[in-house]
Every structure is written in structure tokens, then in C-alpha cells.
Simulated assay, not measured.
Amino acid sequence: MKTLVIGASGATGLHLVQQLLEAGQAVKIIVRSTAGIPAAWQTHEHIEIITASIAEMHPEQMVELLKDCQSVASCLGHRPSFKGIYGKPRRLVRDAVQLICECIQSNAPASPVKFVLMNTSGNANRDLNEPNPLKNRIVIGLLRVLIPPHPDNEQAADYLRVTIGQDNPYIQWVAVRPDGLINEDEVTDYELFPSPVRNPIFNPGKTSRINVANCMARLIAEPELWDTWKGQMPLVYNKEA
């Protein structure tokens, strides 16, 4: 299996690519600069590095990149800086998801391509009747106005949920929703739930980035796990001792 990973130089993307490589999978990555990736990747036989900005890629380029990929994983996000949060492109993730999905459909693959999107626990799955107290709605409304990456994440997941839907012949998807992200060095036990089991705004849990990456890698590699969660937006929490 070959996977295209976008956002590969980010804190979660680095873990994801490394875990895919360790599992013997072939990987393509799109990065703006190779400076932020491990030097060993430069000569790794199972990785192809495309140095480019996905926000500036032409559809023809993406169509070619996807022709031999059976899966796509997005760990793409906005840089944690004023320019990254408030500068352009405001819809970086949504636009990348749309571009990739449109190009997959242009290729009309014989078997559906898996698309795994890293999303956020602050984004509700509107296909389900998830609890949404008034105080949460107020905070989320403020986030939509004040923090552009939040509506970007919402719209990226909604593109998969609504536009691609459940019966697309060329794309199947899962949007992984971690809770409060933390850094850990090793994969630990974690749990998946179809909806939040904690209040994501006022009582968030913890999810390590390496566990998010492990979950995404397993979804790509394990058919049974994929069949369990395809078309859904599972919450990922570190398992509490």
C-alpha cells in the first residue's frame, strides 16, 4: 500500500510517516521544505518527497501524485503563529481536502481510496445527536469568529461528511478527533469512541500525538478497524490508568 501524507512535517505528521515506514509501507509526502523532516527520510527507499506548497499545487500535479496511492492521510494544520492563524490561506485544510478528493475522483480508481483526516474534538459530528450544551455553543461560536483554523477544521470534516458522504465509489473516509493534544515519546493504550465521552471545551481529556498517528496508521493498514470506523468521526483519548 502507498499513502500520500500531507502535513508530514508537523508534530503528528512526523510520527505518522515514521510509523508507516516502520510498518514497511510506501509513503509520499508533500512538504514546503525538507528542513523540518528527519535526514534519514532523504535516502529512505520507501519514501518519495515532493517539495511544494499544497496550497499552490495545480490539480494536474495532484492527479498524477495520487495515481498510485491507495490511501491519503492529512495531518495538515495552521502554523502556531499570528501569520499562520490569521493569514492566508484561511481555509488551508478544507481546500486541501477538496483538491485531493476532486483529484481522486478524476482518477476514478478501481477500488476506493482511504482518506484519514486529523480533525479536532471541538468539531461535532453533525450526523449524530452529540451533546452540545449552550455554554459549548457559545464558545464554539466565538472560536468560529476569532480563530480561523477552527472553522477550517469544521469545513474540512464537513466536506468529507456531506460532499463525499457514505456511498462515494472512489473515496472512503474517517475523520479522527483527538482531544487535548500532548507530546509523548511512545505509543500507549488509547480508546476510540463514536462521540465525546468528556466535554471537549470545559473538561477535555488528553491524547498524545504519537497515539493519534498510531490510530491513523492502523486505520490505513488494518481492514477490520477501517470497516469499523469508515464514514465516522471517532474520538481518540489516551486510556486512563
Score class of each variant (00 low, 15 high):
residue 3 T to G: 01
residue 8 A to L: 03
residue 9 S to N: 11
residue 10 G to T: 07
residue 11 A to N: 14
residue 12 T to F: 01
residue 17 V to Q: 02
residue 19 Q to A: 08
residue 22 E to S: 12
residue 23 A to W: 00
residue 24 G to E: 07
residue 25 Q to W: 00
residue 25 Q to P: 00
residue 31 V to K: 04
residue 32 R to D: 07
residue 33 S to E: 06
residue 35 A to M: 01
residue 36 G to Y: 02
residue 40 A to W: 02
residue 41 W to Y: 02
residue 42 Q to W: 00
residue 44 H to Y: 02
residue 45 E to Q: 12
residue 49 I to S: 01
residue 50 I to E: 07
residue 50 I to M: 04
residue 54 I to E: 04
residue 66 L to G: 01
residue 70 Q to H: 13
residue 71 S to D: 07
residue 78 H to N: 12
residue 79 R to Q: 15
residue 81 S to N: 09
residue 82 F to V: 13
residue 85 I to K: 12
residue 86 Y to D: 03
residue 93 V to A: 04
residue 96 A to C: 02
residue 96 A to I: 01
residue 97 V to A: 06
residue 98 Q to H: 10
residue 102 E to Y: 00
residue 105 Q to S: 15
residue 106 S to V: 14
residue 108 A to V: 05
residue 111 S to F: 08
residue 118 M to D: 01
residue 120 T to F: 02
residue 121 S to W: 03
residue 126 R to L: 14
residue 126 R to E: 14
residue 126 R to A: 03
residue 132 N to A: 14
residue 134 L to C: 05
residue 135 K to S: 12
residue 136 N to F: 04
residue 137 R to A: 10
residue 139 V to Y: 07
residue 144 R to D: 11
residue 147 I to T: 07
residue 148 P to E: 11
residue 151 P to G: 08
residue 151 P to R: 04
residue 153 N to C: 15
residue 158 D to Q: 13
residue 162 V to P: 00
residue 165 G to L: 09
residue 169 P to G: 11
residue 169 P to R: 10
residue 171 I to G: 03
residue 175 A to M: 09
residue 183 N to A: 12
residue 184 E to W: 04
residue 185 D to G: 12
residue 188 T to N: 10
residue 189 D to Q: 10
residue 190 Y to D: 11
residue 192 L to S: 05
residue 193 F to W: 14
residue 194 P to A: 13
residue 196 P to I: 12
residue 197 V to T: 14
residue 197 V to D: 00
residue 199 N to S: 10
residue 201 I to Y: 10
residue 202 F to E: 11
residue 204 P to Y: 09
residue 211 N to C: 09
residue 213 A to Q: 05
residue 214 N to V: 03
residue 221 A to P: 00
residue 229 W to D: 05
residue 229 W to R: 05
residue 231 G to T: 05
residue 232 Q to I: 01
residue 232 Q to C: 12
residue 238 N to T: 03
residue 240 E to R: 10
residue 241 A to W: 07
